[in-house]
Every structure is written in structure tokens, then in C-alpha cells.
């Protein structure tokens, strides 16, 4: 049974932002009329002089952040993930990524976590988009503890960072870790037959799938990949070499996300049978977060099925581990 984090990633973020400012980071937190949803209002109440609400104007918010960063501040912009990845994308690319300015982009309500709001509010393309932009760092924490650590790592890093956060409390999978290192994946479970590489809330589901697979005699390794870019290519290469098969699991469209990133590494290093668990290139509907995950191909069953498929393909191509 999974234990859930008591707080959501967005609450962890607000706390981390307060800590970062109080530790001396020249922080400026910006929001675009969703500060109650993103919890940036908690920071705003604690430090009103360091908080700006620009109204419903995401593009303007990104532009202002670029200016603040050019003058040496560390702006943290907040909105829904789908808006930051898409609505203000040009401003992000031209005014922030291209000049490599130190702006932290907080993509809230990511994946299906906006649930009943529906597909207009689901963010299923953001990882692929952000990953394709030069100079961007892309982080996808799995739980509140990791979100806190990832935020601290992001503000200590000089350059644009996209941080993808889920709306609701998620199962706790990372909290034992000392610190968050950008560019590093983590082996959470040892295994020899194949490796499941997960990100975000799918890490918890990968762990559940592993239990299920163990019952049918398959020993699956689990690697958590909170840093999508830079990607920990070494841990993937090692997994391919040592276990001979890979499954990726992400709350994102099947194109452009973690699965694509891992396939790129495998293709250029140790090609191995691989299956991707992700959204099958469609828009969903309204529904509760976990309900949508199950309905749209991101269930524990789907991971198990993908793993068994990889095992079968390993047999076919004669991979001996």
C-alpha cells in the first residue's frame, strides 16, 4: 500500500519559495490570476514585496520575468502547465531560453491532475515542448518532498528551468533521498529482467507494477527520472545493458516525452526492446485524476502489460539479459 504525501506539490513549492527567499535568493514570484490554485499566494502573503500578480496575462508575465532576470533577479513564474508550455511559449523561447535568462517556470496542474476541468486544462504536451527548447532544464518531481528539493536545486542553478507539478497529493516515493541533483536518475528498486523508467506520479505506479510482476516471476528494476533534461543517459544505458529491456511510464503524450528521450538514448547506445506507457495521442475528458490515468492507458495494468511485452520481445530477439 502506498502512503500519500500529506501535502501537495504546490504547497511544498510555496514553502520552498519562502525558504529560498529567506536564505538570500533574490527571488521574485509572479502569478497570472491563479495564485490561489498554484499556492503562490502563500508566498505572496509572507512576502508581499516580492510577489506580483499580473492578471490574466501569461505572455506579459513571461516578458516581465525576462526583464527581471536580465537585471539579476530570480523570477519564478506560476500558472497552469498547459498555459506556460503553450500560451506563453514564444515569450519563453525568445525572451528567456534564447538569452539563457534565470527564470524558473512552475507548470502547475500538469498531466491529468486538473481532472474535471477537462482537456483544455490537461497538460500532456508540455514535456515534449519544453525538452525541445535549447537551454531549458526540465524537471518532473514525483511527490511533494521531491518538488521541494527540485525547487531548491532549480533556484541554485543559473538558467531557465521548467518544473512540472501535479495538483493533488501524490504517493510518496522519493522522501528518503538526501538531495536533488539535476541530471540524475535514481534506482528505486533492483531488478534483472527489465527496467521500468518512470517520471512524476508514474514512478509510484511503476513500483506497484513491479510487485505485480514479481508475482509472475519477472524481476523489474525501477528507475525514477525526475530530470528529463538533462537526462541521465548513463543510468539508462546501464539498465539496457544489464536488464536488456526497457519500459517507460509517463503522464504525457506518447510523443516527445520521457519515452522519446529514453528511446533516443537507446538508439544511439544500447538498442534494446522497449515499450512506452503514455497517453496514446489523444485528448481525454473530464474525470478525477487517477480515474483518467487508468482510463487513458496509464494504469498499473498497462505498465505490467508493457513489461510482459518487453519480456516477450526479448525472447524473440534472443536478448540474454
Amino acid at each position: 500500500m502506498m502512503t500519500f504525501e500529506k501535502i501537495a506539490m504546490r504547497d511544498a513549492f510555496a514553502q520552498a519559495a519562502i525558504e529560498a527567499l529567506e536564505a538570500g535568493v533574490d527571488l521574485m514570484v509572479l502569478d497570472s490570476d491563479v495564485s490561489k490554485s498554484t499556492r503562490s499566494t502563500v508566498f505572496g502573503k509572507a512576502h508581499p514585496e516580492r510577489f506580483l500578480n499580473v492578471g490574466i496575462a501569461e505572455a506579459n508575465m513571461l516578458g516581465i520575468a525576462a526583464g527581471l532576470a536580465s537585471a539579476g533577479m530570480t523570477p519564478v513564474v506560476n500558472s497552469f502547465a498547459m498555459l506556460l508550455a503553450l500560451r506563453s511559449l514564444d515569450q519563453l523561447r525568445q525572451s528567456i531560453a534564447y538569452p539563457r535568462l534565470n527564470v524558473k517556470v512552475m507548470g502547475h496542474y500538469a498531466g491529468y491532475s486538473a481532472g474535471p476541468e477537462g482537456p483544455s486544462h490537461h497538460a500532456i504536451e508540455d514535456i515534449g515542448i519544453m525538452r525541445s527548447i535549447p537551454n531549458m532544464t526540465v524537471l518532473v518531481p514525483s511527490d511533494a518532498a521531491e518538488a521541494h528539493q527540485a525547487f531548491m536545486a532549480a533556484v541554485q542553478f543559473d538558467g531557465p528551468v521548467y518544473l512540472r507539478l501535479a495538483r493533488n497529493p501524490a504517493p510518496a516515493v522519493s522522501s528518503h533521498r538526501e538531495q536533488f541533483v539535476i541530471g540524475q536518475g535514481y534506482e528505486l528498486r533492483a531488478g534483472v529482467d527489465l527496467t521500468i523508467v518512470g517520471t512524476g506520479v508514474m514512478v509510484a505506479r511503476a513500483l506497484e507494477a513491479t510487485d505485480r510482476l514479481a508475482a509472475s516471476g519477472v524481476s523489474a528494476r525501477v528507475v525514477a527520472m525526475p530530470s528529463i533534461k538533462p537526462l541521465d543517459a548513463a543510468i539508462i544505458e546501464r539498465a539496457a545493458r544489464e536488464t536488456g529491456g526497457i519500459v517507460t511510464a509517463e503522464e504525457h503524450n506518447i510523443y516527445g516525452g520521457l519515452g522519446s528521450a529514453v528511446a533516443e538514448v537507446l538508439g544511439e547506445t544500447v538498442p534494446a526492446p522497449m515499450q512506452r506507457v503514455g497517453i496514446r495521442d489523444c485528448y481525454a475528458e473530464s474525470g478525477e485524476w487517477f480515474e483518467l490515468l487508468d482510463q487513458y492507458g496509464l494504469s498499473v495494468d498497462a505498465i505490467v502489460a508493457a513489461a510482459l511485452q518487453v519480456m516477450e520481445r526479448k525472447d524473440q530477439v534472443g536478448v540474454t539479459r
Binding site: P116, E117, G118, P119, S120, H121, E285, S286, G287, E288, E291, L292, Q295
Partner: peptide, 17 residues
């Protein structure tokens, strides 16, 4: 069934539903 899975009335208007 507004805002619920399987319903036709999505949380924000969906012209295909």
C-alpha cells in the same frame, strides 16, 4: 454527469462532445 468521466458535458466546453 457534468465534469464526470463518461459524461458529455466536459468541465470546459468541448464542441466535439
Amino acid at each position: 454527469r457534468f465534469r464526470q468521466i463518461g459524461g458529455k458535458l466536459v468541465g470546459h466546453p468541448d464542441m466535439r462532445k
